[in-house]
Design a protein around this nucleic acid. Structure first.
Lengths: 172, 172
DNA sequence: TGCAACTGATTGCAAATTGCAATCGGATAG
DNA sequence: CTATCCGATTGCAATTTGCAATCAGTTGCA
């Protein structure tokens, strides 16, 4: 379940952490979708992950230090998964991955608007987002002034605007 | 052999392209190691890729539009693999991946010096590197003035300096 | 109290993937 | 003529994957 260590190359080691078809998808849903529970990840996933794979990957990501698990006070057997700093710093990678995919692959418009926004915002926006994630997941004090829309809200709003516009276009 | 299209999300689609343990390793060796031939990739790989996996991935990367193959004029049955623009624009992703791995994973010093250099150089260095790759692989005119050391040369020199220093340290 | 819905998983199993070893036919060098 | 190198291909055992069904415990509601 742990790492292979085929070599000490940073790219190789990174691939050994999330060089599979699901790990980054789960992290994406937690980071951008704000999901924290098993069921949210299971049912909310566009790609339709199976429950055993999800359980396996969550365990693996915990062992690797990318996630932690805590009891949910509202429900005795509910668990809350949190991102660690290690996972939060994946934001630039996800942003680049999204930017690349948006250019070269057959993405859908509503799902790529977030990647576009994140790309346009660049490192300053990524930093703000990571700050918000640290606040949400690690309890760190937030540096963003209250009243400012969060990055996730901005991404969500942009996504919904596209969906609304497309629905409109269908009616016309 | 082609793509699944579990969803139109750019991150998902990117993962479907190189969300496996070998595709990015091959591209890394071509991009940073300058390897162009089957045997170079097979024997030069630190991670020890098997020949059938290499053949399979090369074929897949060609189908996906990341590589092209051409005859080597010096040897009738030798093939030269070239990066396409699609693959060349992976440089920022590889740089981020290397930067992240360098921080969070048990990398070795000599193998991570290149990631460090690439991180410090930032987007301007990435652009220069991509320009050089376009020159090498696509025959594009090089914008870098002659006499300037290429990025690959810089990376190689840094790597060799670390190796030499470590060898020295062992002697002492 | 009874029961349905929901919680985070686990198990069985068939199918696909992986990667090692051996081998292929052709090309080239000595 | 022979040894070596070329980009693969094949056979095969081991592992991994992912779908379907199921688990035991928890909660909300009647």
């Amino acid at each position: 379940m742990s790492i292979d260590r085929r070599s000490g190359c940073p790219i190789n080691l990174s691939l050994e952490v999330f060089g599979d078809r699901w790990s980054l998808i789960i992290l994406r849903d937690m980071i951008f979708g704000g999901r924290r529970h098993f069921r949210e990840l299971l049912n909310g996933s566009l790609e339709g992950i199976a429950s055993n794979i999800l359980a396996d990957r969550l365990k693996r990501l915990m062992e690797l230090g990318l996630l932690t698990k805590a009891d949910d006070p509202s429900h005795r057997q509910k668990a809350i998964y949190s991102l660690t700093e290690m996972a939060i710093t994946l934001v630039p990678i996800l942003a680049q991955l999204g930017a690349w995919g948006r250019v070269w692959l057959p993405v859908t418009e509503e799902l790529s608007i977030r990647a576009e926004l994140l790309e346009k915002g660049g490192p300053p926006l990524w930093d703000q987002f990571m700050d918000e994630l640290r606040h949400e997941h690690l309890g760190a004090p937030s540096k963003t002034p209250p009243g400012t829309p969060t990055v996730r809200q901005q991404l969500r709003a942009a996504y919904e605007a596209v969906v609304a516009r497309k629905a409109e276009a269908t009616v016309d």
